[in-house]
Simulated scan of single mutants.
Amino acid sequence: MNLACSDPAAGRSPEERLARMGIVLPPPPPPIANFLTHVREGELLFLSGQGPREADGSLHTGKVGADVSVEQAYAHARLTGINLLSVIRAALGELHRVKRVVKLLGMVNATPDFARHPDVINGCSDLLVTTFGEKGQHARSAVGLGSLPGNITVEIELVVAVERP
């Protein structure tokens, strides 16, 4: 599908697209352990896993498939995407320097019988495609895990290709 033609926001900057969605990027969440939020190597930006942290610092927790619905977890993945975008902006200064979202790894804190991991991680993927258009389309893995740090519902990491200044 050619998103540039079908996307009503085509031609707008990622920041303008976010503003049209009513999204204001918060400051990037600080690391919770001994790691960096991102590492740049050449034209690739590797983002550490982020979780569903609200601007006030509170986290969404629980097991998807037991305590948390697919719809709630989708919203948590979208919020995680917003946090990832804030890390990208802090790392690059502006979002329009993203050449392409290359790879997304989405982890879902799920019950053993839960099977809708892709539906949950779509919360982040949909946000990235809406924000970046075709540049937001990416390779992806969506997996279920028995637990995540702090019992958060989702954790997502990204690899992004960066335009040279």
Results as ranks from 00 to 15, higher is better:
113 D>T: 04
109 N>M: 06
25 L>G: 13
112 P>Y: 13
108 V>R: 04
51 G>T: 05
148 L>K: 07
160 V>M: 01
148 L>T: 06
93 G>M: 10
130 T>H: 00
82 I>R: 01
103 K>N: 09
83 N>F: 01
114 F>I: 00
45 L>V: 13
139 A>E: 12
44 L>Y: 13
14 P>N: 12
86 S>E: 00
128 L>S: 07
102 V>N: 05
121 I>M: 04
154 V>P: 10
150 G>I: 00
40 R>V: 13
13 S>D: 09
31 P>T: 11
124 C>Y: 02
143 V>M: 05
129 V>E: 06
150 G>Q: 10
1 M>R: 11
75 A>F: 00
79 L>N: 03
86 S>T: 01
139 A>R: 11
100 R>S: 11
88 I>S: 03
5 C>S: 14
121 I>L: 07
145 L>H: 08
26 P>F: 15
48 S>I: 00
121 I>D: 05
93 G>R: 01
61 T>L: 03
154 V>Q: 07
71 E>L: 08
39 V>M: 04
14 P>E: 14
137 Q>K: 09
139 A>H: 13
127 L>M: 07
33 A>L: 05
84 L>A: 07
119 D>R: 11
52 P>R: 08
63 K>A: 00
35 F>M: 08
9 A>S: 12
14 P>D: 12
16 E>D: 15
72 Q>P: 01
41 E>Y: 11
68 V>W: 01
123 G>I: 09
17 R>T: 13
99 K>S: 13
15 E>S: 15
87 V>Y: 00
54 E>A: 12
128 L>D: 03
35 F>K: 08
125 S>A: 13
99 K>G: 07
147 S>G: 07
155 E>Q: 13
77 A>R: 06
79 L>Q: 14
107 M>D: 02
162 V>M: 06
77 A>K: 04
20 R>G: 15
14 P>L: 10
72 Q>R: 12
126 D>T: 10
64 V>A: 04
116 R>H: 06
26 P>R: 14
34 N>K: 08
163 E>M: 11
6 S>M: 08
78 R>S: 05
126 D>L: 11
11 G>M: 07
78 R>H: 09
143 V>Y: 01
29 P>C: 09
20 R>E: 15
6 S>E: 08
107 M>V: 02
85 L>N: 05
157 E>S: 15
25 L>S: 12
41 E>I: 15
141 S>E: 13
164 R>W: 02
95 L>Y: 04
35 F>G: 06
79 L>V: 05
4 A>Y: 14
72 Q>A: 08
2 N>Y: 07
92 L>G: 05
5 C>E: 14
82 I>A: 04
